[in-house]
């Protein structure tokens, strides 16, 4: 069988490209929802983590330690087959929740390190000049934090997309699952897996591209301002 025959079988025959796109869409949905939810949750955890109150700080530290120190697949299996087993929840909901938890721990840590890296002298100066605490944060600290956190956040997103490839364990048909199914049906695992990797690679580069685009837009905005 020639390569083009194999590709035809894997990608075209019987509309299998639609199935692959369907799986890709599930991957994107889970990643995007988990990212939004996880970022919000991560900001809250970071807020707790940087409090002076030792209880709040302790809770946040334990939360981060557990979620960052355990494989997300274990958490997913625990939540889907254990905690929410009888709750009759949609598996996608459980997956989004799981990945949001995991991402929130990473986001909390990356925000905290960015906060620490931001120039404290500037914030102190602003306070001395009579800026309110909120204004100081909004105008002085936040822009620095965002700039410092951006590259790490970008790789967190790409990591998240890749981690979601385990959701096949909890009855979700995502991109990896579709690729596996296609490999079984066509008996062409090597080629099919390569195609799957290319799709994930493209997805990652779209994320990198979007970030590069925002950088460019900012630069242009800075020049005109």
């Amino acid at each position: 069988m020639s390569l083009s025959d194999k590709l035809y079988k894997i990608l075209i025959q019987g509309g299998s490209w639609k199935t692959i796109l369907g799986g890709l869409w599930v991957t994107i949905q889970i990643s995007a929802l988990a990212l939004v939810l996880g970022t919000v949750l991560g900001a809250v955890i970071c807020l707790l983590r940087t409090r002076k109150n030792p209880v709040a700080r302790g809770i946040a530290s334990v939360y981060i330690a557990i979620l960052r120190g355990t494989p997300v697949l274990m958490l997913l299996l625990l939540l889907y087959y254990g905690v929410f087993a009888r709750a009759n929840l949609n598996p996608v909901t459980v997956a989004v929740f799981t990945f949001a938890l995991n991402v929130s721990a990473h986001v909390a840590e990356l925000l905290r390190s960015a906060l620490e890296a931001a120039d404290h002298g500037q914030a102190e100066a602003a306070r001395t000049l009579g800026f309110s605490a909120w204004d100081t944060f909004r105008i002085i600290t936040l822009p620095q934090v965002l700039r410092i956190a951006k590259p790490v956040y970008q790789s967190t997103i790409v990591n998240l997309i890749q981690w979601t490839s385990v959701v096949g364990y909890v009855t979700i048909t995502d991109l990896t699952r579709v690729i596996n199914n296609t490999a079984s049906r066509t008996m062409q695992p090597l080629l099919t897996i390569c195609i799957g990797m290319l799709i994930y690679l493209a997805l990652s580069y779209i994320v990198f591209g979007l970030f590069a685009l925002t950088d460019k837009m900012k630069k242009r905005g800075g020049e005109t301002a």
Partner: peptide, 17 residues
């Protein structure tokens, strides 16, 4: 019924999923 899609021709997924 749980299917695995992992054992053709007993249990697999057609091209349309």
């Amino acid at each position: 019924v749980a299917v695995t899609g992992d054992r053709p021709p007993m249990d697999y997924f057609s091209a349309d999923g």
